[in-house]
Nucleic acid binder design. Structure first.
Lengths: 107, 107
DNA sequence: CAGGATCCAGTGCGATACTG
DNA sequence: CAGTATCGCACTGGATCCTG
């Protein structure tokens, strides 16, 4: 982790390792929490995470898209307008994050 | 990241980020699963994770100890004998990992 | 046997500049 | 405005050696 991916995978392809991989990334939790409040454009996410580089945000957003956690809606206009939002699977992931949150409170 | 720690922390000190940090590390999930089956000595954990370096294992074990997830029992004999086992908090963490595991199955 | 010290490689991310 | 390319650093973990 960074998160983080095991180079030599476990013998049993491990589901919890997959989940961990999906949410590992410096800004992913923050991005997911913000998208859980509602659809966002990149510039909004940049504003909320003013310390993050654009490079990191776009990279992590594209990973989340690949993993089916969030989706893009490209309006194909100029200047560009693209909106990000949680998928159904992404909303399920939020409930998982709430479990992490509960546990984290006692740490 | 790898897991992994955010250098510039979130404004709100985020519990789920803490939990994620505690379980982020190349061998931590595997270690926790093995310790969940029962008390282990370092040499056993090395055997189960034959591809892991001793350095990585001891470092991650010590982090888990620091975070109150596992505990050491040092028999203070020679040659050394030290046993690792889950704490009460560690056992609670296992239930969290089961949630990650469930979610991971649909990925 | 437990585990620390040193050196090295891979990589995630920040800063910045650029394009359509 | 969204997204990419380049450069450079810092951090994690691997390999190896050494100690009590």
């Amino acid at each position: 982790m960074g998160t983080y991916t095991r180079k030599t995978p476990l013998k049993i392809d491990c589901p919890m390792e997959k989940t961990l991989h999906v949410i590992s990334g410096k800004w992913k939790l923050a991005l997911l929490c913000e998208l859980n409040r509602g659809t966002c454009r990149l510039k909004d996410l940049e504003k909320y995470n003013s310390e993050a580089s654009k490079r990191a945000l776009t990279k992590q957003l594209s990973e989340l898209v690949e993993d089916g956690i969030i989706q893009k809606k490209d309006y194909e206009v100029y200047p560009k307008k693209v909106e990000y939002s949680l998928t159904a699977r992404g909303k399920e992931l939020i409930t998982v994050l709430e479990v992490l949150d509960e546990f984290g409170k006692q740490l």
